[in-house]
Nucleic acid binder design. Structure first.
Length: 517
DNA sequence: TTAGGGTTAG
């Protein structure tokens, strides 16, 4: 036990002794409550809470409204939920505040059932829910049906013009369950919106539903309306830019951050670095990284992943070493960055060494993604037998991505036999992934096994597996245009195709032969 | 005592 805990225990012993003596005195029969409160605030260990709790319940007059709720609140904050419940159950007249606090506690453990039970108990006692109740209750929900039940309760008690916090919670809940239609309906019907509700709906599109263009469109709309924008909004918008390569937009946001002097905290910096890296501007990402006022494991990860992605393996590993010298402990994601950097730069020995050092030197157990990187590292380098050995002996059940990694390596090094083994697993794990069949067909073609190519194509046709049309995005004047193979949706489609034919014609005159198989 | 955020294997 450390010194502060010892001194605390001395103080509490003295206090208990004093309060026991005071109880005997007719004039000073109750110890002052503020003493309990000030001691409660200093508690760090469960045993200390228990000692004070014992003292509180010794004096029935102290079970009143200020001490036990405070005790429940503090226990919930310390995640001592069972003990908080025990104290809660001793309360004669728990208030809405205490019910809310308990529901908040259950929300941490996603215990919606207990949360609902408490809510019913609260209403049964004739207590009205307040503006805090539903956001807590929603946070406890995991299943869509549970959230819908809370939505009904909100409508029943608050009506359609319910409180902005409840509505924003509903937007987040529905969007995180893929129900953007519901989320958008609530958003559109809100009588009042603020930066949080706008950010919640944009995040719904971007983070939870991968609808980046829709997210950016709403961000434009948000600016038109003139709502405040803060760093949380920008983090989400930058993440959307990174995913679809909207560099102009991302650069504009960087300018906005500088113009409005928004503090580049580590979350915002991580998103900004990632945007530059994913849009192809790794040098700008490095320059921004150098200037950062604040670095965290995430900002380090972002730059390491970015460098690795661009084939700057040595620079990524240098950043990794620099990160450790700066005193930042690498985490699981750091090693994904490090391993993929080795993989993309062909640094087999170093990659192997880093993989085995993860648990040995850093206490981080490799997960399936780390194994994926290792298999990719070995596979790209042509060490297919070793890669297959890893897949067969790894302690985690290999998934589709992992077998897909091996299949890619087989395609790069034309190994039909191992590709067929990988394919056997992929048919079970990813039966509708057209890319796998096309790759297998290409491996047969590379070996000249045309009968097998035909078989593979026939299998795809019979199983009604269609090739996903190729898709590309281009950003012009802050607007992202999306194209799929053969589409004529764009208003300038004729001119675009005419230009494409011209490009292909010129390429062919320079000796380019398209690879169509 | 309440709502919204980043980096991760083919």
């Amino acid at each position: 036990m450390n010194n502060s805990a010892v001194s605390f225990n001395t103080r509490i012993s003295k206090f208990i002794k004093a309060s026991e003596n005071l109880t005997l005195s007719p004039r000073l029969h109750r110890p002052p409550e503020f003493l309990h409160l000030s001691l409660l605030k200093k508690c760090t260990h469960l045993i200390q809470f228990k000692q004070i709790h014992t003292q509180i319940i010794k004096n029935p007059s102290h079970q009143t409204d200020s001490l036990l709720p405070k005790l429940v609140e503090m226990l919930v904050s310390l995640n001592q939920l069972d003990y908080a419940r025990l104290v809660f159950d001793q309360m004669v007249e728990p208030t809405t505040f205490v019910f809310n606090t308990m529901v908040r506690g259950y929300a941490v453990g996603c215990a919606a059932r207990e949360g609902f039970q408490l809510y019913i108990q609260m209403r049964y006692r004739g207590l009205e829910p307040d503006t805090f109740t539903y956001p807590f209750l929603l946070r406890a929900c995991t299943a869509l049906s549970q959230g819908k039940a809370v939505h009904c309760l909100i409508l029943k008690t608050q009506g359609f013009g319910s409180h902005i916090y409840s509505q924003t919670s509903l937007i987040s809940f529905y969007s995180s369950h893929g129900e953007m239609k519901h989320a958008r309906q609530i958003f559109d019907r809100m009588p009042q919106r603020n930066v949080v509700s706008w950010t919640a709906i944009i995040t719904g599109y971007v983070k939870h539903n991968k609808r980046y263009k829709d997210g950016l469109a709403l961000f434009h709309q948000m600016q038109t309306v003139g709502t405040d924008i803060n760093e949380l909004t920008l983090v989400t918008v930058l993440s959307a830019c990174a995913h679809i390569g909207a560099f102009e937009m991302g650069k504009w946001i960087h300018g906005y951050i500088e113009r409005t002097r928004i503090f580049l905290n580590s979350t915002l910096a991580t998103a900004l670095l990632d945007m530059y890296a994913k849009c192809g501007y790794i040098n700008t990402a490095s320059r921004v990284f150098e200037m950062l006022p604040q670095r965290s494991v995430c900002t380090w990860n972002s730059i390491i992943v970015g460098l690795g992605m661009h084939g700057y393996g040595d620079e990524a590993l240098e950043r990794f070493e620099q990160m450790q010298r700066s005193g930042t402990r690498p985490d699981s994601i750091t090693f994904i960055g490090v391993l993929s950097a080795c993989s993309h730069s062909g640094m087999v020995e170093k990659g192997r060494e880093y993989f085995y050092s993860m648990s040995r030197d850093f206490g981080i157990e490799p997960n399936i993604k780390h194994y994926g990187c290792l298999v990719d590292l070995l596979g790209r380098a042509g060490l297919l037998d070793e890669a297959y050995e890893i897949v067969r002996n790894m302690p985690i059940e290999p998934n589709g991505v992992l077998w897909g990694t091996l299949l890619n390596a087989c395609a790069a090094h034309t190994n039909v036999e191992l590709a067929e083994t990988a394919m056997e697993h992929l048919i079970k794990l990813e039966p509708f992934n057209d890319g796998n069949y096309v790759l297998m067909s290409n491996i047969y073609a590379a070996k000249g096994q045309w009968n097998d190519v035909a078989k593979m194509r026939r299998f795809m046709k019979d199983s009604r597996i269609l090739k996903t049309p190729g898709c590309s995005l281009i950003e012009i004047n802050n607007v992202v245009h999306e194209f799929t193979v053969g589409d004529t949706v764009h208003p300038q489609s004729k001119e675009i195709y005419s230009m494409l034919y011209d490009v292909v014609r010129r390429l062919k005159t320079q000796g380019y032969i398209p690879k169509t198989q």
